[in-house]
Structure formats: C-alpha cells, structure tokens
Design a protein around this nucleic acid. Sequence first.
DNA 1: CGACAATGAAAAA
DNA 2: TTTTCCTTGTCGC
Length: 275
Amino acid sequence: MPEGHTIHRLAKDYAEAFVTGDPLRVTSPQGKFTDAAALLDRTALHTTDAHGKHLFLGFGDPGPEHTDWVHIHLGLFGKVTFGPAPAPPPTDTVRLRLADDASYVDLRGPTTCTLITDGEKRAVHDRLGPDPLRPDADPAHAYRRISRSRTTIAALLMDQKIIAGVGNVYRAEVLFRHGIDPYRAGRDIRPAQWDAIWADLVALMREGVRDNRIDTVRPEHTPEAMGRPPRVDDHGGEVYVYRRANLPCHICGGEIRTAGLAARNLFWCPACQRP
DNA sequence: CGACAATGAAAAA
DNA sequence: TTTTCCTTGTCGC
C-alpha cells in the first residue's frame, strides 16, 4: 500500500529495528542487488530518510559525502516484511534482506533498489515536490505550479514533481473532503483552497504514518454514525470514494463514479464535488 | 492454472 | 499516449 505515509512509516520502522550501531548482514537472495549487498554487508545502518514515495537507507560513514545510500522505491507492488530472528530461509523474490541477531526485514518487488551517493540522493530530492510529511516542505512552491497550470487538479496531485507522496487514495479522498471537482484546472484552485488541502494532507498523512493505513472518513460520517452497516474497505482503511464506484456516497447517498485519468482510476462523487 | 488487477513511474514512441 | 517492469492475491475455468 505504498503512498507517502507507508514510506515514512517504513523509514521509522527500519531505523527502529536496525539503527543499532552494530553491523548488519546484508544480502540479496534474488540476486539483482548482490554486488551492492556484498559491499554493505557487515556495515552499520546509521540513518533512514523518506521523501514522498522514496526511501533511503544510509550506510557507512555518516560524514558529509561519505554515505552509501540504498535508494528504494516500492512502485505499485513492492512490499516490506519485518520479523523476529531467526529469519526464515529467503524466497527467491527477496531483493534485499537486512538481518541482525534480533530481527530481519525483507524487501520484495521494488521498482527501484540501487546504491547511490550523497550527490545522487540530493538530485532525487531536487526533482521531487514538497512532501506534506517533511518539516522542510514549502506548500507555496507547489501552489505556484498548480496556480499556473491548465492541467486538472486530480492529475497535478499525482505529479510527484509538484507534490510528493500523494497517491491515488489520498488524491481521491482529499478532493472529496474539500468538495472539489477532480477535473477542475489547477489555475482555478484559490489560494485559501490550496492552504486547506495542504493542511488536510499533512493531518491525514501523519495519521496514516501513525496507524499504517489510510482513514479519511470524519467521525460523523462513519457508517455507524450514519446508521449504515459497517464496511471494511479491502485496502485496510475507511474512505469516502476510493474504490467505491457505484456505491452510495457516505454523505449524500448518490452514486460514486469512476473514470480513467492520467492512466489511473479516479473516484469521486459528482454531487458533492460539483464543477 | 491462466488472466487480471493493484495505492507507481520511467522509457519509448 | 502506450509500453514496460516489478509481485501477489483473487477469480474463473
């Protein structure tokens, strides 16, 4: 379930389990990261970092320009599994395994898992937009680009160069929560509206990191509060519109619609999100 | 057991 | 705009 909150949570979890000061066993049972793993084996993990959907694991010398970073991007399918020692025999899909005497962690199916330098890491940060989960994020930078764009706000929110970490679920949900038609052009988003969207993303995504899932339904709109049967969405959290095509809107009861936009499935309530 | 979809993004055309 | 890559769970036959 990799949107930005997942990656920030992973950065925390990797650090908690493996930033111990002690050397780790680093392997690539699948074989696609073998050389790099051999280089890192028996060295210590000293830092983890996340920006949008990008995860960084810092090995080696923490001094400037001396860190070897493992750059990980889960893509659509990537998964990370933590567990206590002893680690089970790895399956041949495990791209990267870290292990010490206490625990192990397996990475499977990432689109990216490469060893990069400090400079290359900076280049990744430079091409990403502000991340609502990072303290250094500047929402005004994102708004400058949005306010000048004829592209739909739904496509802009998915563009990692503009804002980093928002994926298909947060996109659909934040637009619903602010009653914004996903097809509205970026240039038609008012500054106050952007401020509200940004603040909401910061709050929702922080909650997502804490709970390790996406919940966006306000307490007064939960099925319980609305007198409807409870529903557990199959992505783990409670949401207004994501993957709820043809189901009744939690607020107005109208039908949630779906359509393709920017090669992804878009979900919205045409009654609550009027043009 | 094959087809297909899924919270992503880069490369090719 | 289309193709490609990565993995796994589910569904239908």
